[in-house]
């Protein structure tokens, strides 16, 4: 993390060890009091931080450790009857084809969702930035899917994707009729299966996720854009930079921290993808033929419809390791130092 300039003197202030001149007792007392005030402030800050910290430790960190413990045991309601299995579940994970599918799918979701959100989110934010009128309205419209419950979104999209009733296929049929009448039948597109096709199902769900979370990205990028000082653009313009060059050499580098944040947040959200997948194909969650299955959903199914809590915990630990690794790699690769 970059250190803010005004932090520097305070934290690195050298403690004076030189003997005090006898004629300045007032000043030294004042100085000591100033120090102790800041210390006292810090102590109070820690006290206030301690409460949420304890809460966090109890509700997040302790269960996380516990789930690792559970992953080493065969599950039973009565703790005394939980048999220790060591790493047996982890060995089972390695040979579990359904887990492999869930893992590939999850990474595939991330590969589709994260770049799409970055490009679209930034693009829309830049366009919105240049719009003078109705900007708050546009912002609200783009943000509204984000505040809609995932279950409701998935349900509506499930109908839109419906082979026999959905609006997409209705549009495709209308289009095909139109171009056929114009004598351009080769332009027509047949109705698609979308969620019912094992090949199309994952991209179809990914599109819903992108659509739903785009608003969040737009707002983040808008805030980032507003933080770019006007004078850099002016200076670049005086140097003869055109609009693209200004975007490429001013906006992009200065937005780097925002982009890193956006990529990491959307990656974590996508690796945990669950709500949309569960609700969009309710009769065959994660289907058809595991085409949309994610790690989080597989874990849920194992734990709560098959009661294999131990094995599900092992999957959770795997998901944790995966997210941690991906995030660390992203931090390494993306966070370049930018000199202003």
């Amino acid at each position: 993390m970059r250190r803010r300039p005004h932090d520097a003197p305070r934290s690195s202030a050298p403690r004076s060890s030189a003997p005090r001149p006898p004629d300045a007792p007032d000043r030294s007392r004042r100085r000591r009091r100033a120090l102790s005030l800041s210390t006292r402030e810090a102590i109070w800050a820690y006290v206030f931080l301690l409460l949420p910290l304890a809460f966090y430790a109890f509700l997040r960190i302790y269960p996380a450790i516990q789930s690792f413990d559970l992953s080493l045991h065969r599950w039973h309601v009565d703790p005394a009857q939980r048999t220790f299995l060591g790493l047996a579940y982890y060995r089972e994970l390695i040979g579990d084809p359904k887990l492999h599918r869930a893992l590939t799918n999850t990474l595939l979701y991330a590969a589709i969702v994260v770049p799409s959100q970055l490009v679209l989110g930034l693009g829309i934010a830049v366009l919105l930035q240049s719009v003078r009128r109705l900007r708050p309205l546009f912002r609200a419209i783009y943000f509204s899917p984000y505040v809609t419950p995932a279950a409701a979104v998935a349900w509506v999209w499930g109908w839109m994707y419906s082979v026999n009733f959905g609006v997409f296929n209705t549009a495709l049929i209308a289009w095909s009729d139109f171009v056929t009448r114009l004598g351009l039948a080769w332009l027509s597109i047949p109705p698609q299966a979308f969620l019912s096709d094992p090949k199309q199902a994952l991209p179809s769900v990914a599109a819903v996720v992108v659509w739903q979370q785009l608003g969040f990205q737009v707002v983040i990028f808008l805030a980032g854009l507003q933080g770019v000082p006007r004078m850099f653009y002016d200076a670049a313009a005086i140097d003869g930079a055109n609009a693209f060059q200004r975007f490429r050499f001013v906006t992009l580098p200065l937005l780097n921290p925002v982009m890193v944040f956006s990529v990491i947040i959307s990656t974590i959200a996508t690796l945990q993808l669950f709500d949309q997948v569960v609700n969009i194909n309710f009769t065959d969650q994660g289907g058809p033929l595991n085409a949309t299955l994610t790690i989080a959903l597989y874990m849920y199914q194992l734990a709560f419809s098959r009661f294999q809590i131990g094995y599900a915990s092992a999957v959770t630990v795997l998901l944790f390791v995966l997210i941690l690794t991906v995030t660390l790699i992203q931090l390494r690769l993306l966070q370049r130092r930018v000199e202003y």
Partner: peptide
């Protein structure tokens, strides 16, 4: 018949 003719839990 077609699969998922009516979308939803008990389509």
């Amino acid at each position: 018949a077609v699969l998922n003719f009516v979308p939803g839990d008990n389509g």
